[in-house]
C-alpha cells in the first residue's frame, strides 16, 4: 500500500510557471478562482478556456497529470451535467422521448457548469503541480504577515507546517516499517471484516504515536539547544524574490478579469 503513495503532486520541471514566486502564484490562483464566476456566456467561457490552456502549455505539465487530478470529481461533474440536461427547463425543446424532455437551456447550463469545474480543478491543480508544498508554505507565511498584527501566530503556523511537511516522508518510512514488522507477526491489514481490520490497526498506531511523541520532544530539545526563541529576528534559509514576471502574472489576471467583465452578458 505504501509504495503507491507519492507524497504531494509536485513535478519539478523548468518552466515559467514553476519559476514564478509562490506568492504571485497564490494570489493569481486565488484571484482566478473568483474571476471564473464572472463568465456566463459562450464567449466568456471560451476566453477562460483559452486562457487556461495557455497556462497549462506554459507550465509544461503533461495533461495526463491534470486528468489524474480529476478522478475524484469526474462523477460529480458528469452527475451535475446530467441533472441539468434532465431537470433544467429553459429555452427550446431539443427532443422528447416519453418522460424525457431535453431543453436547449439545460444542455447549455450543464456544459457551462461542467466547464467551470474543469477549469477550476485544472488551474488549482497547476499550483500544486508546479509549486512544492514547502514553497507554498513560505508564500503563505509571507502573504499572511500583515495578520500578525491581529495576533494570528503566522510564524508559528508556518514553522509547524514546514516541520510537518519535513517529517511526512520520515513518518511514512516508519509506518511502512512497523506495518511490515506487524505483518511478519501475522497482522492482516487488508482483508477480513471491518472489525478485525480496525483491531489490526491498533498495534500499528501505538508504536507510531509513541515514536511521534518522542520525536517531537527530541526536536524541541534540539531547537531549544540551538537557541530557538520564536519568530522575532529569525532569518530564513529560503528567501523569496519578487520579480518582474510575478507582477506581470498579476497584471494578466487583472486583464483577464476586465475582459470577462466586458464579454459577459
Amino acid at each position: 500500500m505504501m509504495e503507491k503513495m507519492i507524497f504531494g503532486r509536485y513535478l519539478p520541471l523548468q518552466s515559467v510557471v514553476h519559476r514564478l514566486d509562490p506568492r504571485a502564484k497564490l494570489l493569481f490562483i486565488f484571484g482566478f478562482v473568483i474571476v471564473v464566476f464572472l463568465a456566463n456566456n459562450a464567449l466568456s467561457y471560451g476566453l477562460l478556456a483559452v486562457f487556461t490552456l495557455v497556462f497549462i502549455y506554459l507550465s509544461k505539465i503533461n495533461v495526463r497529470f491534470l486528468l489524474a487530478g480529476l478522478k475524484p470529481v469526474i462523477w460529480l461533474i458528469a452527475f451535475t451535467f446530467l441533472l441539468h440536461i434532465f431537470l433544467t427547463r429553459e429555452g427550446d425543446l431539443l427532443f422528447e422521448a416519453g418522460f424525457l424532455k431535453v431543453y436547449e437551456g439545460g444542455v447549455r447550463q450543464g456544459a457551462f457548469i461542467s466547464l467551470r469545474f474543469l477549469l477550476l480543478i485544472f488551474v488549482t491543480s497547476l499550483l500544486t503541480l508546479t509549486t512544492s508544498p514547502i514553497s507554498i508554505t513560505d508564500g503563505l507565511e509571507s502573504l499572511l504577515k500583515p495578520f500578525k498584527k491581529l495576533k494570528l501566530p503566522v510564524h508559528e503556523l508556518a514553522l509547524m507546517m514546514s516541520i510537518s511537511l519535513r517529517f511526512i516522508p520520515t513518518l511514512m518510512d516508519e509506518t511502512d516499517k512497523i506495518m511490515k514488522a506487524q505483518m511478519a507477526r501475522g497482522a492482516d491489514f487488508s482483508s477480513g471484516p471491518i472489525k478485525e481490520r480496525v483491531k489490526a490497526v491498533v498495534p500499528l498506531l501505538i508504536p507510531l504515536f509513541v515514536s511521534a511523541f518522542k520525536r517531537a520532544e527530541e526536536l524541541a530539545v534540539a531547537m531549544e539547544a540551538r537557541g530557538y526563541k520564536g519568530g522575532e529576528g529569525r532569518t530564513k534559509y529560503r528567501l523569496l524574490h519578487w520579480q518582474g514576471r510575478d507582477t506581470a502574472a498579476l497584471i494578466i489576471l487583472v486583464v483577464l478579469a476586465a475582459l470577462l467583465w466586458w464579454t459577459r452578458s
Binding site: S164, L171, A212, A216, E217, L219, M223, E224
Partner: peptide, 13 residues
C-alpha cells in the same frame, strides 16, 4: 515548543 512540534508531527501523521 513541545506542543507546537507535537502538533506538527501529528498533522503529518
Amino acid at each position: 515548543l513541545i506542543t507546537m512540534i507535537e502538533i506538527a508531527i501529528m498533522a503529518g501523521l
